[in-house]
């Protein structure tokens, strides 16, 4: 799945917000890449920098207060950080599509759904009205909205939440983008509707072969659709691994704690949930030490001294931790295997 050409290559991206309380270091030297046809899941809690990273690379952060302090965002070889606003505008909605969390507010209530799907088609592809309309009806049909050509004349409020999210996906897909960025696209939806959207994305991926970045805090969603997973904490990537490795053999203490904290609807039921004590830090400076150390069960003296760089622990599996939690399951306190 992931042997296509590299579509997106983000290197050392750093984003800082100027606030009255001082600078907030929201994204701290984030690097990742994405191949054609690949789905990268991005997991993290609110404030971990996952949305800001994606907004920054789309050039959608208001500046000020936001500032991209360093780094490169290479999209098909072109640096989006330096290419300028006009060029970005031509790429956004054309070769990069995006879907945001809230389908209630991301559609314009005073335009018909048809108009909003036709807009990128006319603007980026230069289609005339009739052809744009035909294509818009095809797209609505593609995302599973029944009676598509009639519904083009409806306004967003005439659609349910799940339907609106389908419309957002149709808009994002309108120009057949090479890259789709989906920021918590199912978080505002009910589980049965989420299941419909996930099924739709699985199908579309197969048929369209685009690269997808899927941001979520729901580990179950990630397990079901991602090829690779990037775990973020306090504006940094703490672990990056193929999806099966991440769930079967998480190596960063934060990933392990996060996986342990979420109960399951199937399988054995724990009597007591494992909570992660404390809260994520406020990022008032570039982290000089491991940001997770204050909440980490394994923290040692060295964690407070230096910020561990990301390093490979297995093929395609990278971790930013001085320890390697390999196979160190929570249970074995006694060291049974001596030699």
């Amino acid at each position: 799945m992931a042997d296509g050409p590299t579509v997106l290559d983000v290197r050392d991206l750093k984003v800082v917000f100027a606030t009255r309380a001082g600078e907030i270091h929201a994204v701290n030297r984030v690097s990742f890449d994405l191949k054609a046809g690949e789905l990268l899941g991005v997991v993290g809690e609110s404030g971990s920098g996952k949305s800001v990273t994606m907004m920054a690379l789309l050039g959608l952060l208001p500046s000020p207060p936001a500032e991209i302090r360093s780094g490169q965002v290479l999209f098909e070889g072109e640096d989006l950080v330096t290419c300028g606003a006009r060029r970005l505008k031509a790429i956004r909605g054309h070769r990069i599509g995006f879907v945001f969390q809230d389908p209630m507010t991301s559609l314009n209530p005073v335009f018909t759904v048809g108009f909003q799907i036709m807009e990128p088609l006319r603007r980026h592809l230069g289609l005339d009205k009739a052809r744009a309309r035909r294509r818009a009806a095809e797209l609505l049909d593609l995302v599973g909205i029944p009676d598509a050509s009639r519904r083009l004349g409806d306004y967003p409020h005439q659609f349910s939440g799940g339907m609106r999210q389908r419309v957002m996906i149709a808009i994002a897909l309108a120009c057949e983008p090479r890259l789709l960025i989906a920021d918590e696209p199912t978080t505002a939806l009910d589980v049965t509707i989420q299941a419909q959207i996930l099924e739709l994305v699985r199908d579309l991926r197969r048929s369209l072969g685009m690269a997808i970045v899927w941001i979520t805090h729901d580990l179950g969603v990630i397990a079901g659709i991602a090829d690779r997973v990037m775990v973020m904490y306090a504006g940094q990537v703490v672990e990056m691994a193929p999806v099966r490795d991440l769930f079967a053999d998480p190596r960063h203490p934060y990933t392990r704690a996060l996986l342990a904290t979420v109960p399951s609807v199937r399988g054995p039921r724990a009597d007591k949930l494992q909570a992660i004590d404390g809260q994520p830090p406020l990022l008032l400076a570039h982290p000089a030490a491991c940001s997770f150390a204050p909440r980490c069960a394994h923290a040692a003296g060295s964690c407070a001294v230096a910020n561990p760089p990301r390093r490979p622990v297995m093929p395609a599996h990278e971790v930013a931790c001085v320890f390697d939690m390999a196979r160190a399951r929570p249970a074995p306190v006694l060291d049974v295997a001596h030699g």
Partner: peptide, 9 residues
């Protein structure tokens, strides 16, 4: 409809 935290499953 609830996704499982287990890619294999």
């Amino acid at each position: 409809a609830v996704p499982e935290h287990d890619p294999a499953a």
